[in-house]
Design a protein around this nucleic acid. Structure first.
Lengths: 129, 129
DNA sequence: CACCGGTTCCGCTGAAGGCGCAATCCGAGG
DNA sequence: CCTCGGATTGCGCCTTCAGCGGAACCGGTG
């Protein structure tokens, strides 16, 4: 598990808009999109052995802001997500797929049910269908 | 293909923040996150045979705003995404997975070659062949 | 024609995105 | 031990936009 896994508890410190009161809301133990996305971006950047400044420069954003994105503190626009994905030399499709895998793996780990079919294979089977 | 597929051209009409000028930007022919997400949400809602009002009420948001999300006009917060996912009786993980599938399918269709050499299982691609 | 339900348009207000400056953290070197 | 520099985080600010509600639009029906 990444040691810098963003903790959703930290984000509301800056008065995050809450889900509408009547909304079903996220499933128990499921992260929010910005938390999972940030975690995945930080993981991908570190896998490349890069600093915040290096990746941020190529993405055309400030390193401080990339830090906030990775920690789930800020919610980047779609343009920003595309820019960072490009800087990490990946595509939006692959990035979103990895985020989905991360979310579903967390859920599987929490469920403690070892299923033979991981989320990656399910995605491919869906494409096959 | 959904006949109301959001057209990215319409979104910039409201002065959408562009990607940083030096950024690599999205891959050619790849949609932005909000466009793919909106398309997927509209598809899921219609699969359930529901109106904007029905789904929006359960999500606790206005139907006009849900329309804008589905058309890619607005960028919902992570709380909103979770709320709508719940209203559609799915999870964030499954929703994000479906968005990734949609993006990758579009890319495959554009490439016109089933080169499934991504982070997905090659065996499943063999099934598709 | 009118009416209705569903969807889109549009302007508004409060909140947040994205930034820059500064502080903090941390490992390396003397 | 202290100092230093690079990396990261904290924080306030301004511009931009999220999310809303009223109204307009549109297609179907009587």
């Amino acid at each position: 598990m990444a040691e810098t896994s963003p903790n959703p508890v930290t984000a509301p410190e800056q008065h995050r808009p809450t889900a509408p009161s009547t909304a079903p809301g996220p499933a128990p133990s499921e992260p929010l999109w910005r938390d999972a996305l940030g975690e995945q971006l930080r993981s991908a950047r570190r896998d490349r052995g890069e600093t915040l400044s290096e990746t941020a420069d190529r993405a055309g954003i400030s390193p401080q802001y990339l830090s906030e994105i990775e920690r789930g503190v800020k919610e980047p626009s779609s343009e920003m997500i595309a820019a960072v994905a490009g800087a990490l030399e990946t595509t939006l499709g692959d990035l979103v797929l990895q985020v989905a895998e991360r979310i579903l793996l967390d859920r599987s780990a929490i469920d403690r049910a070892g299923t033979g079919n991981g989320p990656v294979c399910r995605a491919a089977y869906a494409l096959a269908a």
